[in-house]
Nucleic acid binder design. Structure first.
Lengths: 356, 356
DNA sequence: TTTGATTGTGTGTGCGCACACGCAGTGAAA
DNA sequence: TTTCACTGCGTGTGCGCACACACAATCAAA
């Protein structure tokens, strides 16, 4: 095997020293124009690719990636991206990548902001977070811009010049996909209940996008006998209350044949319906969290759309490593696959998604 | 940040030289028992993890991974694993990984064997291939055992002591999954046509596994009004012949409502039915090859099950790198996800699967 | 003209590890 | 006793690159 060309080869061929080649490569200046041209030419000719192994070894620097996430174990969904990030860190620790983690209270915008500023004060080389609270997130991004910290968003996208890359689902398209699946599952026309089990639903852009997608599917395909009734429930943690709400709805709209739960809380719906005769109800939810999977296997939930929460986190750290170590440019938007999960193919995704 | 412990630290702490530490780490002998114990103890205490970057740099060796695949462009399915391997090679080339490719004629067992032996004669550090021809594959594996070449199989598994790892689909389960999806799509009972568009179907274990899985789904769930009629067609490349066969079948079994095409050739079925009134026919096939995707978008194919052909190849090379560079143990069997692909979520998989 | 700052280039060291080599000590065979 | 193989250990070099430093040349300001 013909060994790879090194900066030494370049130097010899160009009639200069390796120091000069180094200066050209890193554009450190202090090189005459003619020599620079010459060196670049030789690099082209010899098809030079720097040895990244040697490079990182010599660089000998620790890359701290700031990570701002909801506190572990406060919500089954939000554990996954963080675990994914830690998994990625283990995979790339040889490059000197470490995580600087800050946890915040999932329901406290002020805490979110405070922890973010603490994190930025530590001057990490990059920052990753889900912009759960829009207003505060924009402020944080301003701070990042000032401190020159490249930032990756996960789960929800936000328009801001400082955002280097967004990694997450395409909410709108996941709604469209849900429409298709529900139609398949429903055996003919009927009403669909769109259930938002979340707080401040009105401010949650991704939930609205999903709704638009769902409605689009049926209108686009001229499926007129599939009315969609939307209901927001903020007290989703109160089973009795939720149950009462649901019974009202089923009274009001007699022909509801399916429920679309717009986030990872489909299991709350199933729990609220426990022991009652809604066997004919088709249920579609999101995300492979343990309770959802349980009901999927029991046949109480028909479909789960996997938003790859774990992989979102994994991907964020991997991408930053590529950016810093391998000098790769990152795409502004990286939509992850919307995996359709049924009982028969759940095992594979579970293994991947819950992969410690 | 407290820097990582190095062999120098170990040496100092144990009161020996780095050379001795090195000998202990690599078990090269020439170390007294007491010193060895001492060094191991210190390594434990200081929680030593070798710097793999420095290690690979100093190791300075080229790892050649022998790759035996069907000739490029002889079949759209078989291009994908090879492209995946090349993609992986690009990702890990910094570790000195190169591919030694050998192509064989997809329909010629003798050529398969010859090319394999050529490849082995070049003494690669590892070998990857799909055991398309069983008898010849066993022979090749014997040769690998003799030459001490660790081997990874993709696409189809074979029992042989020399097989280090199998990466591919779970054929049986993909049949089960297909049953579920067809039932969803069918709007009530009806017959299913199981179509094997392949040569030597009887020897293809994975096709038989799929059939077993499909039948299992319906019997398991006590769905008795879903008879399954199987038909093998070897001359799948002759559209007129295929069409005639199909018309016969539809005559014979009036109530066929869905077709299960057991491999990547669903598009051949659609082409044969072109322009004829089978709009009500539900079709499920495998793999994201361009023609299948085209018909999926047109609504002529309802489901594709993605067997992640590209990722199979990618994964094989990545795994071998992990094995050689990072000293990871590989699991004997790695089943990849069975992605359910419909028109509404195809884009993401296409991007990933056809990823050059 | 002298001084100082700036530019252009080469040399040297170190990143952490792998591996070759050297050298003293030991014990057995000649 | 000499020879020699072998054991147990230390030293030195190189992998390819990043970066600090040295030093001569140049040019402008005093």
């Amino acid at each position: 095997m013909n060994k790879r060309t090194t900066i030494k080869d370049i130097a010899a061929q160009a009639g200069v020293s390796t120091g000069t080649v180094d200066r050209v490569i890193h554009d450190r200046g202090r090189v005459s124009v003619e020599v620079k041209e010459k060196v670049l030419q030789v690099m082209q000719d010899l098809n030079f690719e720097p040895n990244l192994i040697a490079s990182t070894l010599a660089f000998n620097r620790i890359l701290t990636m700031g990570v701002l996430m909801p506190a572990l174990h406060s919500d089954p969904y939000w554990d996954q991206p963080l675990l994914g990030m830690r998994r990625a860190q283990r995979a790339v620790k040889h490059y000197g990548v470490v995580l600087g983690e800050q946890m915040f209270d999932l329901f406290n915008p002020q805490d979110f902001q405070n922890k973010a500023l603490e994190l930025i004060a530590q001057k990490p080389d990059a920052l990753v977070f889900p912009p759960i609270f829009l207003k505060e997130s924009l402020l944080i991004l301003d701070h990042c811009a000032e401190a020159q910290i490249p930032t990756i968003l996960i789960n929800t996208d936000v328009e801001h010049p400082q955002v280097m890359s967004y990694i997450g689902q395409d909410s709108y398209q996941s709604g469209v996909l849900a429409g298709k699946l529900l139609q398949f599952a429903m055996d003919g026309p009927g009403a669909i209940l769109l259930l938002n089990l979340d707080k401040e639903t009105a401010n949650a852009k991704h939930l609205m996008d999903k709704e638009r997608g769902l409605r689009h599917y049926f209108s686009q395909n001229k499926l007129i006998n599939f009315p969609i009734h939307r209901q927001d429930v903020e007290e989703f943690d109160a089973p009795e209350f939720l149950k009462a709400q649901l019974y009202n709805l089923f009274q009001q709209y007699k022909n509801i044949k399916a429920v679309f739960v717009s986030n990872s809380r489909a299991y709350k719906l199933v729990e609220a319906l426990e022991g009652h005769p809604f066997d004919q109800l088709r249920i579609l939810g999101f995300d492979l969290i343990p309770n959802n999977l349980k009901f999927l296997q029991m046949g109480k939930v028909d479909f789960l759309i996997n938003q790859n929460a774990n992989y979102q986190g994994y991907s964020a750290i991997k991408n930053l490593t590529d950016y810093f170590i391998f000098k790769k440019q990152l795409p502004r938007v990286q939509h992850l696959p919307l995996d359709i999960v049924v009982a028969e193919n759940a095992a594979y995704y579970t293994k991947r998604e819950l992969g410690n």
